[in-house]
Write a protein that binds this DNA or RNA. Structure first.
Lengths: 250, 250
DNA sequence: CGCCTATTTGATCTGATTCAAACAATGTGG
DNA sequence: CCACATTGTTTGAATCAGATCAAATAGGCG
């Protein structure tokens, strides 16, 4: 973006416009209506709550910069992470039609987030019915990703699950221009990866070692570099269709 | 229903009306519009496909009788079941805004299913905007259930997962009047339970033995009887909020 | 009845957890 | 800028939950 401190919400640079454009060809009027949405941008540090279990949000948020996750704490001090959210994602769009949050939404890095009142989104959809489908679809893709994670947790081995998650993050980050060459900045700890796919942090570490040993990836701090994409895809039994992104092959 | 061979789609007996009424108080007009939807009822035997991975459905279906599940086959001959669907459920409502099926929808018992064209549903929502939220919400609850299953697969022990699933089925069946006393007819094989929560059929059997030994349930063929609801809830760490059903306590 | 499909039980094996400790990286205040 | 604290990663050893393999029962049903 032009300026790190401010966002350009004008028509075709608007992050929401860009997001919905992936699936839906938007008209000038629709695009302008989106740009006219009243947004409220806020900065967050690592580990801050964007929404908490039990909240009844009156607005949804759009990640502009940074990384967030949705998670739920469980009895024994454990927690399950349901999804990681990168710029362009609208992680709590569901709150538009589900009264209260049944999970938390937390930043994982310093982040910049735009909030859009539910009332404005509802009005937008009433005036531009095609946007109903475009937004609804976002929540459906969300569910499709959940299903894919369920397949992993239910049926795949540890190494396949991690390889799959890495493939997913690579494809998604690449789609929004956040891959540099063959590297992504994966701002997630191994413990968080474990919370997401149901493995202990210790085992995540061992699996990473194995992925490195097999020559599939290289890690340098939090930077992840692909060494063998085909191999990674095969190991993770990864098929990007469920992301509904329609990107070029790597 | 009055007649086993036919369904009453008139206003307040209409299964879709009843379903949406759980969350939304519907007006007379809305109710009539729902009743006026062109539906096409069809009977199925056990194990038939209602939709297949790769399909591009032009209608959504509503389960009237019987039981269905959504599942996805994986490489090694395994499969993951994502959800079980009981009468009143609209298991493929997502196909309204997601072009192709990324999983299968299959009957698990003889079933009776009503199909509603997507075009009619879209028109219904355009004429009655409040129904947008009512229907969208159904897909969001769907995702909420996925999240809860993810918690189970990622964080809970085998016995907790099965207890949780049993609690879920009990609460859902009870909500539609399919619990008799403290018993439900659970028309699911132990193997299918295993496919749903990521356990081998052998282990499912052992866990059932344990649940019986603990005096939590009784099984008689496919009939499941609650012996200790509190205990079952505690074992499964079950909190029905995620179902968004608002039913009386058992 | 006899076939086919579920469930149960036993024995063995293994992927992943847990506990523990060392090590590396990152951040913080003096 | 260094010393120190904190957080994340790695490695080893012991253990365990659940998988796998194999075979015996038990139910449904044409």
């Amino acid at each position: 973006m032009a300026d790190a401190l401010d966002f350009d919400f004008s028509s075709d640079r608007n992050p929401l416009f860009r997001r919905l454009s992936v699936s839906t060809l938007l008209s000038r009027e629709e695009s302008q209506a989106i740009s006219a949405l009243p947004v409220h941008v806020k900065n967050y540090k690592t580990g801050q709550d964007l929404a908490r279990e039990g909240d009844k949000p009156t607005q949804s948020c759009l990640i502009l910069e940074g990384l967030a996750c949705r998670s739920k704490a469980v009895e024994n001090g454990r927690r399950q992470i349901f999804s990681f959210h990168i710029p362009g994602d609208i992680p709590d769009l569901q709150s538009l039609y589900i009264d209260y949050m049944d999970h938390d939404l937390v930043t994982l890095t310093a982040s910049r987030v735009a909030f859009i009142p539910h009332a404005s989104l509802r009005e937008l959809m009433l005036n531009h019915p095609r946007l109903i489908g475009a937004l609804w679809r976002e929540t459906l893709i969300d569910a499709a990703i959940f299903r894919e994670w369920m397949v992993g947790m239910g049926q795949r081995s540890g190494i396949a699950r991690i390889a799959h998650l890495l493939c997913e993050m690579i494809v998604r980050l690449r789609a929004i221009g956040l891959m540099e060459g063959l590297s992504i900045r994966l701002s997630i700890t191994q413990e968080q990866i474990g919370d997401a796919i149901g493995l202990s942090p210790v085992h995540v570490s061992r699996v990473f070692k194995e992925l490195r040993a097999k020559g599939l990836i290289r890690t340098d701090g939090r930077t992840l570099t692909i060494r063998n994409w085909e191999g990674l895809v095969e190991t993770g039994e990864f098929d990007p269709d469920y992301l509904h992104l329609r990107t070029a092959p790597i």
